[in-house]
Structure formats: C-alpha cells, structure tokens
Amino acid sequence: MISINTILKEVLNMSDKSLPSPFWVMVRKEISEHIKSWRFFILMGLILLTTSGSIYTILSVIRDNPAQLSANNTFLYLALFTTSINNLPPFITLIGFLGPLIGIAFGFDAVSSEKNSGTLSRIFSQPVPRDYFINSKFAGAYIVIILLIFALGFLVTGTGILYIGLLPAAEEVFRLFMFLIFTAVYIAFWLNLAIMFSILFKQPSTSALSVLAIWLFFTIFYSLLVQFGTHTFLPADGFAAQQVTIALSRLSPDFLYNELVTVLLNPSIRSLGALSFEQISDTLPSLLPVGQSILLVWQDIIAIVAATLICFGISYALFMRREIRA
C-alpha cells in the first residue's frame, strides 16, 4: 500500500516544495481509502471475471474461425467490445450493467458513513471550505472510476493486440476512447445519484437500497413499462408506436447509454429511428465516419452529461444547506 501512496503523491503533488492544497490532500485520502477497500477488490473481481469470459470467447473466434463474425465487420477491435457469441453478453452490455454498480458502490455511503462515524464534524472544524468535502468525495471516487474504466479498456485492447497480432486503426482507437470517456461519464451519473442519496438518508443501507431500486427500475422495468404502455394505446407495428417508444425510452439513462455506446462502437449504424423507404432507397451501405457517429448521438451525450451535472448540483446544494449536527 505504501507504493500506491507514493504514486498518488507523485501524481497529485505537482512539486515537493509547494504545499499541497487541502483539497488535494482530501482527494488523495479518498482515493487511497477506495483503493484499499474490500469494495474495490470485489468490484474489480466481478468485472474481470464477467468480461474476461466474453472477451476470451470472441478472441478465440477471431483467431480460429473469423468467418463466424459478420462479413462487413471491418473493425476487429470494435467487434471485440460489441459482438455477442454463444449468447455471452458483449463487453459493452456487461459494462453498461456493472458500471452503475461501481458508481453506486463508491457513492452510496459517501456522506452518511462519515457522519455516522463522527469524522464529519472533525473535518468540518479544520480550516477548509465546506464544499471541499463533497467535491473531494466526488473527485476521489471519480478518479478511481476513470482509472478503472481506462485500465479495463486498455487491458482488453492489449489482450486483443497480443492475440490477434494486428494494431488497431486510428479510428478504432478514437472510437474506443470516446466509448471509455462516456462510460466514465455514465458511471459518474450513478455515482452522483448515490452521493445524493447518501446525503438524504442517514442509514447507508437505506440509501443503497434506494439507488439500487432506481437502477433496477431503469435497467429492467422501465423498458417493459414503456412497451406495455405504447402497445396498449397505439397500434402495435405502426410508425407512431415506434417513435413514442424511443422517445419515452430516452428518459432512461440506461437506454441513453446503450444507444450512445452502440452507435459509437458500430460505424454501420446510420440512424437511431426508423427510416422510410424513400430515405433508404438510394443510400450506399457504407460505414459512418466518427464525426457522423458522434453527431448521431449528440443528444444522448448532452442528456447524460446534463443528468450527471444535475445530480451533482442537487447533492451539492443539499449538502451545503444541511445542518451539521452530530
């Protein structure tokens, strides 16, 4: 653990001579607490176990039987993240599922545990502005999450390079980067939501259950509800039903994220909704350049970033207004 601390010191203290700002001292403490926690190891283990299965299957297919992959898939490394073989969910689905769990696990007791253990009032009596606390809670957890996500992404790509022996194309690298960045933003949304509940509820278990309930609602029930709703009120196969379904689904952060990363990692997706025959009739079935893919999901990006910021804003406001009675 000493080595981790030394590395953190190197990274966070720009130079030895100048004093580290209290904020970075606090962030550093957050990071080291997260990294030393059991929670972190369990999540790491969970993610590595589930994703390695999926990645391994795809890699062996690519090496031994590439014909099994669809013919127009020119981007092998993107396929690594998106293809589902033998009913094993692809990497993006797994991360979309487990990512929120990381955020929730790092945030659900961020404030309440400090309050309950009596460390909060001690920190507040130190000469640091009050918002340093909530900011460092977020920043500390978020730095760990970003490192985790990028490490995971690079690990998969690296394994791919070792296995396949080809280098990823620049466009692939760029798309992967975007994918990792927005995954981190998506997890930040859940982190902020969890931090918000940790301020609202005194009991960490209550807050964990509430966030998990929201998460389950959006990942499982929401899409069912939307389909059920539209099918009861609108003719089943109509264009209107489809539009309404998509519009309603986009209220779910889970749906937004899946749409976003699917488009980012699949250059062959050209549209998010249904296209009429006139629209398709003269198009060439080519792949979209990165810029166009991003343009396609621009509203999703905005929505996810906005939701993340709103959650943080609410947490911040709640926290600053709270009476600090032990």
Binding site: K29, E33, S117, G118, T119, S121, R122, S125, P127, A326
Partner: peptide, 14 residues
Amino acid sequence: KRIIGYLPDNVGFP
C-alpha cells in the same frame, strides 16, 4: 477554524 481546535462529541476516525 485555523486557531480553534474542536473535539466533537462522539469523535470518530477513519
């Protein structure tokens, strides 16, 4: 807060 040291009721440490 720079000059006051405060020991709260039920003090806790990480």
